[in-house]
Design a protein around this nucleic acid. Sequence first.
DNA 1: CGGTTTTTTGATGGACGTCAACCCAAGTGG
DNA 2: CCACTTGGGTTGACGTCCATCAAAAAACCG
Lengths: 271, 271
Amino acid sequence: MARALIQALTGNVEFGESLSAKERLLLNSFPPQKLEFEKNTVVFREGEPANQFLLVEKGVCFTHRHLEDGSRQIIEFYFPREVVALGELSKAHHSAGLMTLSDTVLAVYDKDEITQGFSESPELSRLFIRMISKQQANLTERLVGLTRYSARQRMAHFLLEVDFRLKRSEMLDFQELSGKCSQTVMPEETTPNRSLVKIPQVLIADSLGLSIVHVNRILRQLREQGCIATRGYGIELSDIKALKGIAGWAAENPTAPKDAVTPAIPSISVE
Amino acid sequence: MARALIQALTGNVEFGESLSAKERLLLNSFPPQKLEFEKNTVVFREGEPANQFLLVEKGVCFTHRHLEDGSRQIIEFYFPREVVALGELSKAHHSAGLMTLSDTVLAVYDKDEITQGFSESPELSRLFIRMISKQQANLTERLVGLTRYSARQRMAHFLLEVDFRLKRSEMLDFQELSGKCSQTVMPEETTPNRSLVKIPQVLIADSLGLSIVHVNRILRQLREQGCIATRGYGIELSDIKALKGIAGWAAENPTAPKDAVTPAIPSISVE
DNA sequence: CGGTTTTTTGATGGACGTCAACCCAAGTGG
DNA sequence: CCACTTGGGTTGACGTCCATCAAAAAACCG
Protein backbone atom coordinates (compact mmCIF):
# COMPACT_ATOMS: atom_id res chain seq x y z
CA MET A 1 0.00 0.00 0.00
CA ALA A 2 2.27 2.74 -1.25
CA ARG A 3 -0.75 4.98 -1.38
CA ALA A 4 -0.34 5.69 2.30
CA LEU A 5 3.27 6.64 1.71
CA ILE A 6 2.38 8.99 -1.07
CA GLN A 7 -0.29 10.72 0.96
CA ALA A 8 1.98 11.00 3.93
CA LEU A 9 4.80 12.35 1.85
CA THR A 10 2.77 14.93 0.10
CA GLY A 11 0.91 15.84 3.23
CA ASN A 12 4.19 16.35 4.96
CA VAL A 13 5.69 18.51 2.29
CA GLU A 14 2.89 20.79 1.40
CA PHE A 15 -0.68 20.13 2.23
CA GLY A 16 -2.56 18.94 -0.82
CA GLU A 17 0.42 18.58 -3.10
CA SER A 18 0.46 15.35 -5.05
CA LEU A 19 2.91 13.35 -7.05
CA SER A 20 2.78 12.55 -10.69
CA ALA A 21 1.35 9.23 -11.77
CA LYS A 22 4.84 8.18 -12.71
CA GLU A 23 6.04 8.80 -9.17
CA ARG A 24 3.24 6.78 -7.71
CA LEU A 25 4.21 3.87 -9.86
CA LEU A 26 7.78 4.29 -8.77
CA LEU A 27 6.91 4.27 -5.09
CA ASN A 28 4.64 1.31 -5.60
CA SER A 29 7.69 -0.69 -6.49
CA PHE A 30 8.99 -0.33 -2.94
CA PRO A 31 6.68 -2.55 -0.91
CA PRO A 32 7.00 -1.68 2.76
CA GLN A 33 7.17 -4.11 5.59
CA LYS A 34 4.64 -3.54 8.36
CA LEU A 35 5.65 -3.71 12.02
CA GLU A 36 3.55 -3.37 15.15
CA PHE A 37 4.74 -2.10 18.51
CA GLU A 38 3.08 -1.85 21.87
CA LYS A 39 3.05 1.44 23.70
CA ASN A 40 6.18 2.51 25.57
CA THR A 41 8.35 0.27 23.46
CA VAL A 42 11.81 0.95 22.14
CA VAL A 43 11.84 0.72 18.35
CA PHE A 44 15.52 1.50 17.97
CA ARG A 45 18.22 3.09 20.06
CA GLU A 46 20.65 5.87 19.39
CA GLY A 47 23.71 4.54 17.60
CA GLU A 48 22.11 1.43 16.17
CA PRO A 49 22.58 0.84 12.44
CA ALA A 50 19.92 2.52 10.33
CA ASN A 51 19.00 0.72 7.16
CA GLN A 52 15.37 1.70 6.83
CA PHE A 53 13.23 4.72 7.15
CA LEU A 54 9.78 4.62 8.67
CA LEU A 55 6.29 5.86 8.07
CA VAL A 56 3.85 6.00 10.96
CA GLU A 57 0.61 4.37 9.97
CA LYS A 58 -1.11 4.34 13.34
CA GLY A 59 -0.21 5.59 16.79
CA VAL A 60 2.29 8.12 18.06
CA CYS A 61 6.02 7.83 18.63
CA PHE A 62 8.95 10.12 19.24
CA THR A 63 12.69 10.42 18.77
CA HIS A 64 14.85 11.28 21.76
CA ARG A 65 18.40 11.59 22.96
CA HIS A 66 19.85 10.76 26.35
CA LEU A 67 22.40 12.98 28.00
CA GLU A 68 25.15 11.96 30.36
CA ASP A 69 23.42 13.48 33.36
CA GLY A 70 20.47 11.15 32.86
CA SER A 71 18.11 13.71 31.41
CA ARG A 72 16.48 13.28 28.06
CA GLN A 73 15.60 15.55 25.18
CA ILE A 74 12.74 14.66 22.89
CA ILE A 75 13.63 15.72 19.40
CA GLU A 76 10.35 15.27 17.61
CA PHE A 77 6.98 13.59 17.91
CA TYR A 78 5.58 11.64 14.98
CA PHE A 79 1.89 11.25 14.27
CA PRO A 80 0.15 9.03 11.71
CA ARG A 81 1.18 9.66 8.10
CA GLU A 82 4.43 11.28 9.10
CA VAL A 83 7.89 10.09 8.11
CA VAL A 84 10.38 9.30 10.85
CA ALA A 85 14.04 10.26 10.84
CA LEU A 86 14.22 11.53 7.29
CA GLY A 87 17.45 13.33 8.01
CA GLU A 88 19.13 10.00 8.51
CA LEU A 89 18.43 8.85 5.00
CA SER A 90 22.11 9.02 4.25
CA LYS A 91 23.50 8.07 7.64
CA ALA A 92 24.61 4.64 8.69
CA HIS A 93 23.48 4.93 12.32
CA HIS A 94 20.58 6.42 14.16
CA SER A 95 21.45 9.70 15.80
CA ALA A 96 18.46 9.44 18.12
CA GLY A 97 16.37 6.71 19.69
CA LEU A 98 12.77 6.01 18.75
CA MET A 99 10.06 5.05 21.23
CA THR A 100 6.35 4.53 20.92
CA LEU A 101 3.91 6.50 23.01
CA SER A 102 0.83 4.50 22.09
CA ASP A 103 0.35 1.21 20.26
CA THR A 104 1.84 1.85 16.86
CA VAL A 105 2.02 0.41 13.36
CA LEU A 106 5.02 1.38 11.29
CA ALA A 107 5.66 0.90 7.59
CA VAL A 108 9.30 0.13 6.95
CA TYR A 109 11.01 1.08 3.71
CA ASP A 110 14.48 0.10 2.67
CA LYS A 111 16.72 3.13 2.44
CA ASP A 112 18.95 1.67 -0.22
CA GLU A 113 16.03 0.85 -2.46
CA ILE A 114 14.73 4.39 -2.23
CA THR A 115 18.15 5.85 -2.75
CA GLN A 116 18.63 3.65 -5.80
CA GLY A 117 15.34 4.99 -7.02
CA PHE A 118 16.94 8.40 -7.30
CA SER A 119 18.73 7.15 -10.37
CA GLU A 120 15.51 6.42 -12.17
CA SER A 121 13.65 9.49 -11.02
CA PRO A 122 15.10 12.90 -10.27
CA GLU A 123 11.58 13.83 -9.20
CA LEU A 124 11.92 11.38 -6.36
CA SER A 125 15.16 12.92 -5.18
CA ARG A 126 13.71 16.39 -5.39
CA LEU A 127 10.75 15.23 -3.35
CA PHE A 128 12.98 13.88 -0.62
CA ILE A 129 15.05 17.02 -0.59
CA ARG A 130 11.87 19.05 -0.20
CA MET A 131 10.76 16.89 2.69
CA ILE A 132 14.08 17.07 4.46
CA SER A 133 14.21 20.80 3.97
CA LYS A 134 10.79 21.12 5.53
CA GLN A 135 11.87 19.16 8.56
CA GLN A 136 14.96 21.28 8.82
CA ALA A 137 12.85 24.42 8.81
CA ASN A 138 10.80 22.94 11.64
CA LEU A 139 13.95 22.19 13.58
CA THR A 140 15.08 25.76 13.12
CA GLU A 141 11.77 27.08 14.42
CA ARG A 142 12.08 24.85 17.43
CA LEU A 143 15.63 25.98 18.04
CA VAL A 144 14.61 29.62 18.01
CA GLY A 145 11.61 28.86 20.17
CA LEU A 146 13.55 27.05 22.83
CA THR A 147 15.90 29.93 23.53
CA ARG A 148 13.78 32.94 22.90
CA TYR A 149 10.31 32.11 24.16
CA SER A 150 9.02 31.72 27.69
CA ALA A 151 7.73 28.45 29.03
CA ARG A 152 4.14 29.68 28.62
CA GLN A 153 4.65 30.50 24.98
CA ARG A 154 6.41 27.24 24.26
CA MET A 155 3.66 25.30 25.97
CA ALA A 156 0.91 27.07 24.06
CA HIS A 157 2.73 26.50 20.83
CA PHE A 158 3.33 22.87 21.62
CA LEU A 159 -0.34 22.20 22.32
CA LEU A 160 -1.42 23.96 19.14
CA GLU A 161 1.08 22.11 17.03
CA VAL A 162 0.17 18.69 18.38
CA ASP A 163 -3.51 19.47 17.93
CA PHE A 164 -2.92 20.61 14.37
CA ARG A 165 -0.93 17.58 13.42
CA LEU A 166 -3.42 15.18 14.98
CA LYS A 167 -6.26 16.79 13.10
CA ARG A 168 -4.32 16.68 9.88
CA SER A 169 -3.68 12.98 10.20
CA GLU A 170 -7.35 12.37 10.92
CA MET A 171 -8.24 14.39 7.86
CA LEU A 172 -5.95 12.32 5.68
CA ASP A 173 -7.57 9.18 7.05
CA PHE A 174 -10.96 10.54 6.16
CA GLN A 175 -9.86 11.47 2.67
CA GLU A 176 -8.55 8.00 2.04
CA LEU A 177 -11.73 6.39 3.34
CA SER A 178 -13.98 8.50 1.19
CA GLY A 179 -11.66 7.92 -1.75
CA LYS A 180 -12.09 4.18 -1.79
CA CYS A 181 -14.94 2.84 0.31
CA SER A 182 -13.89 -0.75 0.07
CA GLN A 183 -12.90 -0.91 3.72
CA THR A 184 -15.39 -0.89 6.53
CA VAL A 185 -12.95 0.60 8.99
CA MET A 186 -14.58 3.37 10.95
CA PRO A 187 -13.11 5.33 13.82
CA GLU A 188 -14.06 3.23 16.80
CA GLU A 189 -13.52 5.77 19.50
CA THR A 190 -16.01 8.58 19.58
CA THR A 191 -14.02 11.25 17.81
CA PRO A 192 -14.31 14.32 20.01
CA ASN A 193 -15.14 17.51 18.23
CA ARG A 194 -13.03 19.33 20.78
CA SER A 195 -9.27 19.11 20.60
CA LEU A 196 -7.80 16.61 23.04
CA VAL A 197 -4.08 16.13 23.48
CA LYS A 198 -3.06 12.96 25.29
CA ILE A 199 0.65 13.24 26.00
CA PRO A 200 2.05 12.68 29.51
CA GLN A 201 3.48 15.76 31.15
CA VAL A 202 6.87 14.06 31.47
CA LEU A 203 7.12 13.89 27.71
CA ILE A 204 6.01 17.48 27.29
CA ALA A 205 8.71 18.48 29.75
CA ASP A 206 11.39 16.50 27.93
CA SER A 207 10.26 18.00 24.67
CA LEU A 208 10.14 21.63 25.77
CA GLY A 209 13.25 21.42 27.89
CA LEU A 210 11.41 22.11 31.14
CA SER A 211 11.02 20.25 34.41
CA ILE A 212 7.88 18.26 35.03
CA VAL A 213 7.02 20.51 37.90
CA HIS A 214 7.15 23.63 35.85
CA VAL A 215 5.17 22.06 33.03
CA ASN A 216 2.50 21.29 35.55
CA ARG A 217 2.50 24.84 36.87
CA ILE A 218 2.18 26.31 33.40
CA LEU A 219 -0.70 23.98 32.68
CA ARG A 220 -2.40 25.09 35.88
CA GLN A 221 -1.99 28.71 34.84
CA LEU A 222 -3.52 28.00 31.46
CA ARG A 223 -6.31 26.08 33.14
CA GLU A 224 -7.12 28.89 35.55
CA GLN A 225 -7.01 31.23 32.59
CA GLY A 226 -9.59 29.11 30.80
CA CYS A 227 -7.43 28.22 27.81
CA ILE A 228 -7.36 24.51 28.53
CA ALA A 229 -9.05 21.89 30.70
CA THR A 230 -7.58 18.66 31.98
CA ARG A 231 -9.73 15.66 31.20
CA GLY A 232 -8.29 12.65 32.93
CA TYR A 233 -4.83 12.19 31.47
CA GLY A 234 -5.63 14.39 28.52
CA ILE A 235 -5.49 18.11 27.89
CA GLU A 236 -8.44 19.71 26.17
CA LEU A 237 -7.82 22.90 24.23
CA SER A 238 -10.89 24.92 25.07
CA ASP A 239 -9.82 28.37 23.89
CA ILE A 240 -7.63 27.97 20.86
CA LYS A 241 -7.74 31.63 19.95
CA ALA A 242 -6.31 32.61 23.32
CA LEU A 243 -3.64 29.95 22.99
CA LYS A 244 -2.60 31.34 19.64
CA GLY A 245 -2.29 34.71 21.24
CA ILE A 246 -0.04 33.35 23.92
CA ALA A 247 2.05 31.33 21.51
CA GLY A 248 2.56 34.24 19.17
CA TRP A 249 3.36 37.01 21.47
CA ALA A 250 1.62 37.71 24.74
CA ALA A 251 2.28 41.00 26.47
CA GLU A 252 3.55 39.58 29.72
CA ASN A 253 4.34 42.94 31.24
CA PRO A 254 1.50 44.18 33.46
CA THR A 255 2.02 47.76 32.30
CA ALA A 256 0.29 47.08 29.00
CA PRO A 257 -1.92 44.03 29.42
CA LYS A 258 -3.22 43.77 25.86
CA ASP A 259 -4.80 40.40 26.36
CA ALA A 260 -4.50 38.10 23.39
CA VAL A 261 -4.78 40.76 20.74
CA THR A 262 -1.60 40.23 18.83
CA PRO A 263 -1.82 37.52 16.17
CA ALA A 264 0.16 34.31 16.23
CA ILE A 265 3.17 34.81 14.03
CA PRO A 266 5.92 32.31 14.58
CA SER A 267 4.76 28.79 14.05
CA ILE A 268 6.22 25.50 13.03
CA SER A 269 3.38 24.17 11.02
CA VAL A 270 0.40 25.51 12.87
CA GLU A 271 -1.66 28.12 11.04
CA MET B 1 36.45 27.72 -10.18
CA ALA B 2 34.20 24.85 -9.31
CA ARG B 3 37.15 23.27 -7.62
CA ALA B 4 36.46 25.38 -4.56
CA LEU B 5 32.88 24.18 -4.53
CA ILE B 6 33.90 20.59 -4.71
CA GLN B 7 36.36 20.92 -1.88
CA ALA B 8 33.89 22.79 0.23
CA LEU B 9 31.19 20.26 -0.43
CA THR B 10 33.28 17.28 0.35
CA GLY B 11 34.89 18.96 3.32
CA ASN B 12 31.46 19.72 4.64
CA VAL B 13 30.08 16.26 4.23
CA GLU B 14 32.86 14.13 5.45
CA PHE B 15 36.39 15.26 5.80
CA GLY B 16 38.47 13.93 2.96
CA GLU B 17 35.69 12.45 0.93
CA SER B 18 35.87 13.29 -2.72
CA LEU B 19 33.61 13.18 -5.72
CA SER B 20 34.02 11.12 -8.81
CA ALA B 21 35.62 12.68 -11.84
CA LYS B 22 32.22 12.62 -13.49
CA GLU B 23 30.78 14.73 -10.68
CA ARG B 24 33.54 17.25 -10.94
CA LEU B 25 32.80 17.67 -14.58
CA LEU B 26 29.16 18.07 -13.78
CA LEU B 27 29.77 20.76 -11.21
CA ASN B 28 32.20 22.52 -13.50
CA SER B 29 29.29 23.18 -15.78
CA PHE B 30 27.71 25.46 -13.19
CA PRO B 31 29.95 28.52 -13.22
CA PRO B 32 29.35 30.55 -10.07
CA GLN B 33 29.06 34.28 -9.89
CA LYS B 34 31.38 35.96 -7.39
CA LEU B 35 30.11 38.68 -5.08
CA GLU B 36 31.97 40.77 -2.53
CA PHE B 37 30.49 42.29 0.60
CA GLU B 38 31.92 44.57 3.22
CA LYS B 39 31.70 43.60 6.86
CA ASN B 40 28.43 44.13 8.68
CA THR B 41 26.50 44.09 5.45
CA VAL B 42 23.11 42.54 4.79
CA VAL B 43 23.35 39.96 2.02
CA PHE B 44 19.69 39.06 2.06
CA ARG B 45 16.80 39.38 4.47
CA GLU B 46 14.35 36.89 5.84
CA GLY B 47 11.46 36.44 3.43
CA GLU B 48 13.24 37.59 0.32
CA PRO B 49 13.07 35.31 -2.72
CA ALA B 50 15.82 32.71 -2.75
CA ASN B 51 17.04 31.67 -6.17
CA GLN B 52 20.64 30.89 -5.43
CA PHE B 53 22.67 29.11 -2.88
CA LEU B 54 25.99 30.37 -1.67
CA LEU B 55 29.47 29.19 -0.93
CA VAL B 56 31.68 31.25 1.34
CA GLU B 57 35.05 31.78 -0.29
CA LYS B 58 36.51 34.28 2.12
CA GLY B 59 35.34 35.88 5.34
CA VAL B 60 32.68 34.96 7.87
CA CYS B 61 28.93 35.46 7.77
CA PHE B 62 25.89 34.22 9.64
CA THR B 63 22.19 33.54 9.25
CA HIS B 64 19.80 35.03 11.78
CA ARG B 65 16.15 35.59 12.57
CA HIS B 66 14.52 38.55 14.19
CA LEU B 67 11.77 38.14 16.75
CA GLU B 68 8.90 40.46 17.44
CA ASP B 69 10.35 41.67 20.72
CA GLY B 70 13.40 42.99 18.90
CA SER B 71 15.78 40.25 19.94
CA ARG B 72 17.66 38.18 17.43
CA GLN B 73 18.69 34.55 17.16
CA ILE B 74 21.72 33.60 15.16
CA ILE B 75 21.04 30.30 13.47
CA GLU B 76 24.46 29.44 12.14
CA PHE B 77 27.85 30.91 11.37
CA TYR B 78 29.52 30.19 8.05
CA PHE B 79 33.26 30.06 7.55
CA PRO B 80 35.23 29.81 4.31
CA ARG B 81 34.44 26.73 2.20
CA GLU B 82 31.09 26.23 3.83
CA VAL B 83 27.76 26.24 2.03
CA VAL B 84 25.09 28.68 3.18
CA ALA B 85 21.41 27.90 3.61
CA LEU B 86 21.46 24.45 2.06
CA GLY B 87 18.14 23.62 3.63
CA GLU B 88 16.52 26.24 1.45
CA LEU B 89 17.51 24.52 -1.74
CA SER B 90 13.88 23.74 -2.38
CA LYS B 91 12.30 26.82 -0.84
CA ALA B 92 11.23 29.92 -2.68
CA HIS B 93 12.07 32.35 0.08
CA HIS B 94 14.79 32.74 2.65
CA SER B 95 13.70 31.62 6.08
CA ALA B 96 16.52 33.58 7.69
CA GLY B 97 18.57 36.65 6.94
CA LEU B 98 22.25 36.57 6.06
CA MET B 99 24.80 39.11 7.26
CA THR B 100 28.52 39.36 6.93
CA LEU B 101 30.75 39.59 9.95
CA SER B 102 33.95 40.42 8.11
CA ASP B 103 34.66 41.38 4.51
CA THR B 104 33.41 38.44 2.53
CA VAL B 105 33.52 36.90 -0.92
CA LEU B 106 30.64 34.64 -1.86
CA ALA B 107 30.29 32.29 -4.79
CA VAL B 108 26.73 32.25 -6.05
CA TYR B 109 25.22 29.20 -7.72
CA ASP B 110 21.86 29.03 -9.39
CA LYS B 111 19.54 26.69 -7.51
CA ASP B 112 17.54 25.73 -10.56
CA GLU B 113 20.63 24.75 -12.48
CA ILE B 114 21.80 22.51 -9.69
CA THR B 115 18.38 21.04 -9.23
CA GLN B 116 18.19 20.34 -12.93
CA GLY B 117 21.51 18.60 -12.59
CA PHE B 118 19.81 16.00 -10.42
CA SER B 119 18.24 14.60 -13.56
CA GLU B 120 21.58 13.88 -15.12
CA SER B 121 23.28 12.65 -11.99
CA PRO B 122 21.71 10.80 -9.10
CA GLU B 123 25.12 11.03 -7.46
CA LEU B 124 24.67 14.76 -7.29
CA SER B 125 21.32 14.47 -5.58
CA ARG B 126 22.69 11.93 -3.13
CA LEU B 127 25.52 14.30 -2.37
CA PHE B 128 23.16 17.14 -1.61
CA ILE B 129 21.00 14.92 0.54
CA ARG B 130 24.08 13.91 2.49
CA MET B 131 25.06 17.51 3.00
CA ILE B 132 21.62 18.57 4.13
CA SER B 133 21.43 15.61 6.48
CA LYS B 134 24.71 16.64 8.02
CA GLN B 135 23.48 20.15 8.61
CA GLN B 136 20.32 18.77 10.11
CA ALA B 137 22.33 16.66 12.51
CA ASN B 138 24.21 19.78 13.55
CA LEU B 139 20.97 21.61 14.13
CA THR B 140 19.76 18.77 16.31
CA GLU B 141 22.92 18.91 18.39
CA ARG B 142 22.47 22.61 18.83
CA LEU B 143 18.87 22.18 19.82
CA VAL B 144 19.76 19.68 22.50
CA GLY B 145 22.62 21.86 23.65
CA LEU B 146 20.55 24.98 24.02
CA THR B 147 18.07 23.42 26.41
CA ARG B 148 20.14 20.96 28.32
CA TYR B 149 23.52 22.55 28.84
CA SER B 150 24.55 25.42 31.07
CA ALA B 151 25.84 28.69 29.70
CA ARG B 152 29.40 27.66 30.56
CA GLN B 153 29.14 24.44 28.64
CA ARG B 154 27.55 26.10 25.66
CA MET B 155 30.22 28.77 25.62
CA ALA B 156 33.05 26.26 25.79
CA HIS B 157 31.49 24.25 23.03
CA PHE B 158 30.95 27.30 20.91
CA LEU B 159 34.56 28.38 21.17
CA LEU B 160 35.81 24.92 20.34
CA GLU B 161 33.54 24.58 17.36
CA VAL B 162 34.46 27.94 15.89
CA ASP B 163 38.12 27.21 16.40
CA PHE B 164 37.77 23.83 14.74
CA ARG B 165 35.96 25.18 11.74
CA LEU B 166 38.37 28.04 11.27
CA LYS B 167 41.30 25.67 11.34
CA ARG B 168 39.61 23.35 8.90
CA SER B 169 39.04 26.13 6.40
CA GLU B 170 42.66 27.21 6.72
CA MET B 171 43.73 23.65 6.14
CA LEU B 172 41.65 23.43 2.97
CA ASP B 173 43.25 26.65 1.77
CA PHE B 174 46.65 25.20 2.37
CA GLN B 175 45.79 22.00 0.53
CA GLU B 176 44.61 23.95 -2.47
CA LEU B 177 47.70 26.12 -2.49
CA SER B 178 50.05 23.18 -2.36
CA GLY B 179 47.99 21.46 -5.00
CA LYS B 180 48.48 24.13 -7.61
CA CYS B 181 51.09 26.76 -6.87
CA SER B 182 50.07 29.09 -9.64
CA GLN B 183 48.77 31.71 -7.25
CA THR B 184 51.01 33.82 -5.12
CA VAL B 185 48.35 34.44 -2.49
CA MET B 186 49.76 33.97 0.94
CA PRO B 187 48.10 34.58 4.27
CA GLU B 188 48.86 38.22 4.89
CA GLU B 189 48.11 38.33 8.56
CA THR B 190 50.57 36.53 10.75
CA THR B 191 48.75 33.28 11.26
CA PRO B 192 48.87 32.69 15.00
CA ASN B 193 49.75 29.20 16.04
CA ARG B 194 47.40 29.67 18.97
CA SER B 195 43.66 29.56 18.39
CA LEU B 196 42.13 32.99 18.15
CA VAL B 197 38.40 33.54 17.82
CA LYS B 198 37.35 37.00 16.71
CA ILE B 199 33.59 37.22 17.12
CA PRO B 200 31.95 40.08 19.03
CA GLN B 201 30.31 39.09 22.27
CA VAL B 202 26.97 40.38 21.01
CA LEU B 203 26.98 37.77 18.30
CA ILE B 204 28.02 35.03 20.69
CA ALA B 205 25.14 36.05 22.90
CA ASP B 206 22.64 36.01 20.05
CA SER B 207 23.95 32.65 18.99
CA LEU B 208 23.88 30.94 22.37
CA GLY B 209 20.63 32.52 23.46
CA LEU B 210 22.22 34.48 26.30
CA SER B 211 22.47 38.14 27.19
CA ILE B 212 25.63 40.04 26.39
CA VAL B 213 26.20 40.64 30.05
CA HIS B 214 26.10 37.00 30.90
CA VAL B 215 28.33 36.06 27.99
CA ASN B 216 30.85 38.48 29.33
CA ARG B 217 30.65 37.05 32.82
CA ILE B 218 31.14 33.52 31.56
CA LEU B 219 34.15 34.66 29.59
CA ARG B 220 35.59 36.28 32.69
CA GLN B 221 35.12 33.03 34.59
CA LEU B 222 36.91 31.09 31.88
CA ARG B 223 39.64 33.71 31.82
CA GLU B 224 40.17 33.55 35.59
CA GLN B 225 40.20 29.80 35.24
CA GLY B 226 42.97 30.03 32.66
CA CYS B 227 41.06 28.42 29.81
CA ILE B 228 41.06 31.49 27.61
CA ALA B 229 42.66 34.91 27.32
CA THR B 230 41.17 38.01 25.77
CA ARG B 231 43.44 39.63 23.23
CA GLY B 232 41.94 42.93 22.19
CA TYR B 233 38.60 42.05 20.63
CA GLY B 234 39.60 38.44 20.18
CA ILE B 235 39.42 35.40 22.40
CA GLU B 236 42.43 33.14 22.60
CA LEU B 237 41.87 29.52 23.52
CA SER B 238 44.80 28.83 25.78
CA ASP B 239 43.71 25.56 27.39
CA ILE B 240 41.77 23.57 24.85
CA LYS B 241 41.82 20.41 26.89
CA ALA B 242 40.13 22.12 29.80
CA LEU B 243 37.57 23.64 27.46
CA LYS B 244 36.73 20.22 26.11
CA GLY B 245 36.23 19.04 29.62
CA ILE B 246 33.82 21.86 30.32
CA ALA B 247 31.95 21.43 27.07
CA GLY B 248 31.55 17.73 27.55
CA TRP B 249 30.57 17.41 31.08
CA ALA B 250 31.99 19.39 33.95
CA ALA B 251 31.26 18.34 37.51
CA GLU B 252 29.79 21.62 38.67
CA ASN B 253 28.83 20.38 42.09
CA PRO B 254 31.43 21.26 44.73
CA THR B 255 30.93 17.94 46.51
CA ALA B 256 32.93 16.12 43.87
CA PRO B 257 35.19 18.64 42.17
CA LYS B 258 36.75 16.35 39.58
CA ASP B 259 38.34 19.12 37.62
CA ALA B 260 38.34 18.59 33.89
CA VAL B 261 38.82 14.86 33.98
CA THR B 262 35.76 13.72 32.10
CA PRO B 263 36.22 13.58 28.33
CA ALA B 264 34.31 15.67 25.84
CA ILE B 265 31.48 13.60 24.50
CA PRO B 266 28.74 15.59 22.83
CA SER B 267 30.01 17.67 19.97
CA ILE B 268 28.69 19.07 16.78
CA SER B 269 31.72 18.73 14.66
CA VAL B 270 34.48 19.33 17.14
CA GLU B 271 36.65 16.34 17.99
C1' DC C 1 42.59 63.48 20.45
C1' DG C 2 37.17 63.17 20.58
C1' DG C 3 33.58 59.88 19.30
C1' DT C 4 31.87 55.40 18.83
C1' DT C 5 31.69 50.76 19.49
C1' DT C 6 32.71 47.01 22.48
C1' DT C 7 33.68 45.16 26.86
C1' DT C 8 33.32 45.09 31.81
C1' DT C 9 31.26 45.23 36.32
C1' DG C 10 27.64 45.81 40.05
C1' DA C 11 22.94 45.49 41.87
C1' DT C 12 18.40 43.64 41.58
C1' DG C 13 14.78 40.57 40.26
C1' DG C 14 12.26 36.93 37.75
C1' DA C 15 11.85 32.52 35.66
C1' DC C 16 12.63 28.12 36.27
C1' DG C 17 14.94 23.92 38.58
C1' DT C 18 15.26 20.99 42.67
C1' DC C 19 13.63 18.74 46.71
C1' DA C 20 10.01 16.78 49.05
C1' DA C 21 5.68 15.74 49.83
C1' DC C 22 0.86 14.30 48.89
C1' DC C 23 -3.04 12.89 45.93
C1' DC C 24 -5.53 10.07 42.70
C1' DA C 25 -6.63 6.38 39.38
C1' DA C 26 -5.72 1.82 37.87
C1' DG C 27 -4.12 -2.51 38.40
C1' DT C 28 -2.74 -6.89 41.18
C1' DG C 29 -2.91 -10.32 44.26
C1' DG C 30 -4.76 -12.42 48.28
C1' DC D 1 -13.43 -6.74 48.90
C1' DC D 2 -9.51 -4.83 50.56
C1' DA D 3 -4.33 -3.98 51.26
C1' DC D 4 -0.53 -2.92 48.22
C1' DT D 5 1.84 -1.16 44.42
C1' DT D 6 2.71 1.82 40.52
C1' DG D 7 2.51 5.60 37.45
C1' DG D 8 1.14 9.74 36.79
C1' DG D 9 -0.36 14.39 38.43
C1' DT D 10 -0.40 18.45 41.92
C1' DT D 11 1.47 21.60 45.15
C1' DG D 12 4.73 24.31 48.34
C1' DA D 13 9.34 25.97 49.87
C1' DC D 14 13.62 27.27 48.47
C1' DG D 15 17.70 28.09 45.64
C1' DT D 16 20.09 29.30 41.35
C1' DC D 17 20.96 30.65 36.87
C1' DC D 18 20.52 34.16 34.05
C1' DA D 19 18.05 38.66 32.27
C1' DT D 20 17.58 43.43 33.03
C1' DC D 21 18.93 48.03 34.28
C1' DA D 22 22.56 51.18 34.75
C1' DA D 23 27.08 52.96 34.30
C1' DA D 24 31.96 53.02 33.63
C1' DA D 25 36.19 51.49 31.44
C1' DA D 26 38.68 49.91 27.49
C1' DA D 27 39.52 49.36 22.61
C1' DC D 28 39.18 50.96 18.19
C1' DC D 29 38.89 54.65 14.38
C1' DG D 30 39.12 58.56 11.95
